[in-house]
Each structure stands twice: as structure tokens, then as C-alpha cells.
């Protein structure tokens, strides 16, 4: 098929192509919804202590940027990784037996043999695990800022088998807690 006949083919099947394009768009949006739902259908839920700031996204409104102690480890002591490392990283998670919060293990370059873990990306000394933002209704970010000052904000995180986690909810613990010691696993 030469280029001219390709152009003619598209023009002659305009209705089919337009319908297919519309279905493609609906399909992409449905796939985004479906894949995320299926991936997290039976995922484990972990509670991680976190600290937020409150920025705003041009497309998606207000959200809270979340910071975790294990994602700051590299900044403090390298976390056992080479300083110029770029690529996937893994953090094993262990559910505490006597409490709600999960414990994060040492940074790894390969997924652990067993147990749940978070999978993230390291680049130029920064790490992201896909759980660094949580969208809130406009004007509702203040309560989280207040919780951040008291260091008692908990992220409820859904962790599927492949480690690509998602923040499900933010919870505020009552009372005051000690400051989070960033830079230590």
C-alpha cells in the first residue's frame, strides 16, 4: 500500500476510523481505571508515617506531596546505593505485630525474595515510589498541614504484588508524636 492509497483508505473509511478513534479514547480511559482497580483489588494495605507539604497542580487541583523516611535515606547516608545510580529500587515492608504502622527495610536494587515491597525509581539522588502525592479537595489541605506540624499523619498505602503502590487515604492520628527522623531506615 503506497502513501496515496493509505490517505484514500482513511478518507474512504472516515466513519469507521472516527468510531475506532473514539473507542480507542474510551478504551484508554477504561484501561487506566480497570488496570488500577484490578492491580489493587487484593493488594495488602500498609500504614506508613509521612509528612506533607501542600502544593497545587495545574491540571489536577490541590494535592499533598508526601515524604517518607525511607525515601530520604539516600540523602542522608547513600542508603547503601552508589551516588550516581539511576534505575529501579525496592524497599521491603514488614507489618508491625503490635501496632498499625508498617516498617520499611533497607533499600535494595532487586526485589526481595519474599514479602511485600515498594518498587520505585532512583535518579540523581532522588527516589520516587509513586506514593508521593495525594489529591485533596480545594481548601482541605490545611488539616494535613496541621497534622504535619504535629507529626502524626499516616498514609494508607495499597501495595500490590509488583510493588507499584498507590495512596488510598491519609489518616490523622490523634495527639502529638515525636518528629520523624529522616535519613534513617
Amino acid at each position: 500500500m503506497n502513501l496515496d492509497s493509505l490517505g484514500r483508505w482513511i478518507r474512504n473509511r472516515q466513519k469507521i476510523v472516527v468510531i475506532a478513534a473514539a473507542l480507542f479514547q474510551v478504551g484508554v480511559l477504561s484501561a487506566m481505571t480497570g488496570i488500577t482497580t484490578i492491580r489493587h483489588w487484593n493488594a495488602e494495605v500498609h500504614y506508613l508515617r509521612t509528612a506533607p507539604v501542600d502544593p497545587r497542580d495545574l491540571f489536577r487541583g490541590h494535592y499533598v506531596i508526601l515524604s517518607y523516611p525511607f525515601s530520604q535515606a539516600w540523602r542522608a547516608d547513600g542508603g547503601g546505593l552508589p551516588s550516581d545510580y539511576s534505575g529501579p529500587i525496592f524497599v521491603p515492608l514488614t507489618k508491625a505485630k503490635d501496632g498499625k504502622l508498617s516498617e520499611a527495610g533497607k533499600l535494595l536494587l532487586h526485589p526481595p525474595a519474599e514479602g511485600p515491597y515498594l518498587q520505585g525509581t532512583a535518579q540523581h539522588g532522588n527516589m520516587r515510589f509513586g506514593i508521593e502525592q495525594y489529591f485533596v479537595q480545594e481548601g482541605k489541605g490545611l488539616q494535613f498541614e496541621d497534622a504535619a506540624r504535629r507529626r502524626n499523619l499516616i498514609a494508607k498505602v495499597s501495595v500490590p504484588r509488583d510493588g507499584h503502590a498507590m495512596v488510598v487515604d491519609l489518616e490523622i492520628e490523634p495527639g502529638d508524636n515525636l518528629p520523624i527522623e529522616f535519613g534513617r531506615n
Binding site: A21, V28, R60, G130, I131, M166
Partner: peptide, 28 residues
């Protein structure tokens, strides 16, 4: 939808998928 699920992935991919959805309309 990324906002609803709090998805935080490689965000240029969002524009890439957007462009693929527009391309057939542009050609037709």
C-alpha cells in the same frame, strides 16, 4: 483519572496517550 487514583507515574506518558487519541481525528 490519575488524580482519582492518586497515580504518580511518568507524567509525560499522559500527553503521549493523549496524542495517540487525537491523531486519528486529525487525519480524518
Amino acid at each position: 483519572i490519575a488524580q482519582i487514583f492518586n497515580l504518580d507515574s511518568h507524567y509525560p506518558d499522559g500527553f503521549w496517550w493523549w496524542a495517540w487519541g487525537i491523531l486519528p481525528f486529525a487525519l480524518c
